[in-house]
C-alpha cells in the first residue's frame, strides 16, 4: 500500500534508517489539523491548571482561581471553598432546580399535620410522586413495589390489616424506630398433640371448618397458662397493637400461608409450622437513614397504600 502510494504520489521521504540491508520507513508528517488540535489540548491543559485544582505542592495542592463555590453548611452558615465535587453537590442539593421545586412543598409538609396533608389534594399529589421514589429505593426490596409484601416474611402494607397500628402516628413510629416482631417457638414447650389442637382452634377463629373436639382442646391451651397464647393475641384473639401480634379472627394472614394452601391439611400444616417454629421479624429503624420530611411523606404514602386508619 505504501509502495503504491509512493508510486502514485511521487517520492515520499524516508526516515533514513535501513534495516536488514534494504528495509526502510517512510516519513509521512502528521496532518496539520491533527497537529494543531494536539497543540490546542496542551494549551487547554495550561488554562485548566490555572482555573481548577491541579498540581500537588508540598502537603497541599494548587486550588485554582475564580472558582469559588458557596453553600450552606450543616450549621446553617455560609461557606465558600474552592471548586470541588463535594461542595458542588451540597450547592445543588440546596439551590438546584429540583431542590427549589421540592422545597416549597417540603416546607409546607414540614408545618402540616397528618390530617392536613391527607386533606390537601395538592400536597397529596406531591406526596404520591415524591414518596414513590423513596419507597422504591428503601421499602420496596422487602414490602414490594406495590407494598404487597411477602407472606411469611414481610407484612403486606396494601391491605386493611395493621399489626402495629394503621394510624399515621403508628406508621410514623414504625418507620422511625423500626419494629421487632417476635413470637416464641412452641415446638418444645407444647406436645405435638397440643400444637395440632391449637392450630385447629386458630383456624376455627377465622371460620375455617375444623375438627370441633380438637379445636376445643386447643382453646384450653390457647386461653390458659398452658400455652399462654392469649398474653399477646388476647382472649378475643384480635391481637395487640403494642406487641404487633396478629389478629387471628380475620381472614388476613401474614405469616402462615393459609390463603395459598389448597387443602385443609395444608392449611393446618401452615399454621402448625408457625406455632412450632415461632416468628422473628425485624424492621430496621430509618431515622438515621432518611430525613424527617422523607419519613413524614412515607408515612402518608403507606397510610394511603391500604386502608389507613
Amino acid at each position: 500500500m505504501s509502495e503504491e502510494k509512493a508510486k502514485t504520489q511521487g517520492a515520499v521521504q524516508t526516515t533514513g534508517h535501513a534495516w536488514d540491508g534494504d528495509l526502510q520507513e517512510f516519513n509521512n508528517p502528521l496532518p496539520a489539523w491533527w497537529l494543531w488540535a494536539f497543540y490546542g489540548t496542551v494549551l487547554f491543559a495550561v488554562v485548566y491548571w490555572i482555573f481548577y485544582p491541579a498540581w500537588p505542592v508540598g502537603t497541599g495542592y494548587t486550588t485554582g482561581v475564580m472558582n469559588d463555590v458557596t453553600f450552606v453548611d450543616s450549621d446553617g452558615k455560609k461557606m465558600t471553598t474552592h471548586w470541588n465535587t463535594r461542595a458542588l453537590l451540597l450547592k445543588e442539593m440546596q439551590e438546584g432546580e429540583e431542590a427549589q421545586l421540592t422545597r416549597k412543598y417540603l416546607d409546607r409538609i414540614d408545618k402540616a399535620g397528618f390530617a392536613e396533608i391527607l386533606g390537601d389534594a395538592e400536597l397529596m399529589a406531591f406526596t404520591r410522586s415524591y414518596a414513590k421514589g423513596v419507597f422504591g429505593d428503601n421499602c420496596a426490596p422487602c414490602h414490594g413495589a406495590g407494598g404487597t409484601g411477602v407472606i411469611g416474611l414481610f407484612p403486606n402494607l396494601a391491605d386493611d390489616d395493621w399489626l402495629w397500628g394503621g394510624t399515621p402516628q403508628d406508621i410514623h413510629q414504625t418507620i422511625t424506630h423500626g419494629r421487632y416482631g417476635f413470637m416464641p417457638a412452641f415446638g418444645e414447650a407444647l406436645s405435638d398433640q397440643q400444637i395440632d389442637d391449637v392450630a385447629d382452634y386458630v383456624l376455627s377463629l377465622s371460620g375455617h371448618d375444623v375438627d370441633g373436639a380438637a379445636a376445643a382442646r386447643g382453646q384450653q391451651v390457647f386461653q390458659t397458662e398452658v400455652g399462654g397464647c392469649y398474653y399477646c393475641h388476647t382472649h378475643a384473639a384480635t391481637g395487640l397493637k403494642s406487641q404487633g401480634s396478629a389478629n387471628l379472627t380475620d381472614r388476613i394472614w401474614t405469616i402462615a400461608d393459609v390463603p395459598g394452601a389448597r387443602t385443609a391439611e395444608a392449611r393446618h400444616a401452615a399454621v402448625r409450622r408457625v406455632i412450632e417454629k415461632g416468628v422473628q421479624r425485624r424492621m430496621p429503624a430509618w431515622s438515621d437513614r432518611l430525613d424527617p420530611a422523607q419519613i413524614k411523606l412515607l408515612t402518608v404514602y403507606v397510610h394511603e397504600l391500604g386502608g389507613g386508619q
Binding site: 426490596p141 422487602c142 414490594g144 411477602v150 416474611l153 414481610f154 421479624r281
Partner: peptide
C-alpha cells in the same frame, strides 16, 4: 434491611 431479608434474598433474590 433485616438479616431475614438478606437470607431470603441470597437464597433466591426473586422471592423478595
Amino acid at each position: 434491611y433485616s438479616n431475614e431479608w438478606h437470607v431470603a434474598h441470597l437464597l433466591n433474590p426473586r422471592s423478595v
